[in-house]
């Protein structure tokens, strides 16, 4: 029952936003714009899908943006040798960075927010060292990367959006239908009770951090393909974007509550909002401000509804 209630709120927020845009900015619904907006924001959605798993266990990972940057910086070293090798390298880097986050968080018992703030700096610094702070690396010479970023599947679905949907679907099934998913929810709801019921909570958290790292790397590749290049700033801001998508989708920051379908709704909401701002000519500064306001409003809204129930 609670599951659907959370989804309901996300759906209502999205519906309101759609209504507003239908009345004031009907341009949003032009097919070309829709395709474009979903393509552009899908990398953020992918990061949010991975991050949602981490938040569900009751932890936080703010280094996802830095992992995107790092994955692309490491991949840049391999691109000239082999493009598929570079893509693989990016993924492995993401997996490794996420795994490292998980290990440090579980072994140190320090709040994951603090650990990952630290790791953000570590990953970004390391990325800059690797590429010697070059302004731009990875040019548009790599066809596979570019295809991934700009191509379509079945002629109409942008590949980044396709990835986002598939990941969300896969992990929704994992959460609902597998032992691992039950463990994630239970760990987030009460980690001591989970531990005392024989759940290996450390392993679960490490796996979730690792998946989150991998998805961040994948989204880094897709974004670089879209932009036709990568810089040491490529992942900047994606941490906040992903957190806001997850929170708007009903993922509770306390852990143990929320769904990937919700995160998908959050992704649509944030994407739509930013697109509306852009079309309305308000620029990125306003939309950044509004994104912050949305996070706080969403948290308040969920807070109010749950308090009332109790």
């Amino acid at each position: 029952m609670e599951k659907t209630q959370g989804l309901l709120i996300s759906a209502i927020i999205l519906a309101v936003l759609l209504l507003v845009s239908a009345v004031f900015i009907p341009k949003v619904f032009q097919p070309k714009n829709l395709e474009n907006l979903l393509r552009i924001y899908a990398p953020g959605g992918i990061v949010a899908v991975g991050l949602s798993l981490v938040i569900l266990t009751g932890e936080m990972d703010v280094s996802v943006g830095a992992i995107m940057t790092l994955a692309m910086a490491v991949a840049a070293k391999v691109y000239d040798i082999s493009e598929p090798g570079a893509l693989l390298t990016a993924c492995i880097t993401g997996i490794f960075a996420g795994f490292l986050n998980g290990i440090i968080v579980t072994k140190s018992k320090v709040a994951s927010l603090m650990i990952t703030i630290g790791m953000t700096s570590v990953y970004k610094g390391f990325a800059s060292i690797l590429v010697r702070a070059q302004k731009k690396y990875i040019t548009d010479l790599y066809p596979v990367t570019q295809r991934l970023g700009t191509g379509n599947i079945f002629k109409i679905i942008p590949i980044p959006l396709f990835f986002c949907l598939v990941f969300a679907l896969v992990f929704e099934i994992v959460l609902r239908k597998t032992k691992f998913g039950s463990w994630i929810y239970y760990t987030g709801a009460n980690k001591r009770a989970a531990w005392m019921s024989g759940v290996n909570i450390d392993r679960i958290k490490i796996v979730c951090f690792t998946i989150s790292g991998l998805l961040a790397a994948v989204s880094g590749v897709l974004l670089a393909g879209q932009l036709g290049s990568s810089t040491v700033q490529i992942g900047d801001g994606y941490d906040v974007t992903a957190i806001s998508m997850a929170v708007l989708g009903g993922i509770s920051l306390a852990g143990g509550k929320g769904t990937e379908v919700g995160t998908l709704l959050g992704f649509l909401t944030i994407s739509l909002l930013q697109n509306m701002m852009a079309i309305a000519g308000l620029g990125t500064y306003v939309s950044t401000t509004l994104k912050g306001v949305m996070i706080i409003l969403a948290v308040l809204l969920y807070g109010i509804t749950t308090v009332k129930k109790e």
């Binding site: 009770a193 019921s197 143990g256």
Partner: peptide, 28 residues
């Protein structure tokens, strides 16, 4: 230590024995 208060009765009963409710395919 005993329960996750926000989760359902079903989840709380099954949390220590999820292997017993798996299909042959590995899904719950």
């Amino acid at each position: 230590e005993g329960l996750a208060m926000n989760r359902s009765i079903q989840e709380n009963i099954l949390i220590a024995s999820l292997n017993k409710v798996k299909n042959s395919s590995g899904f719950l």
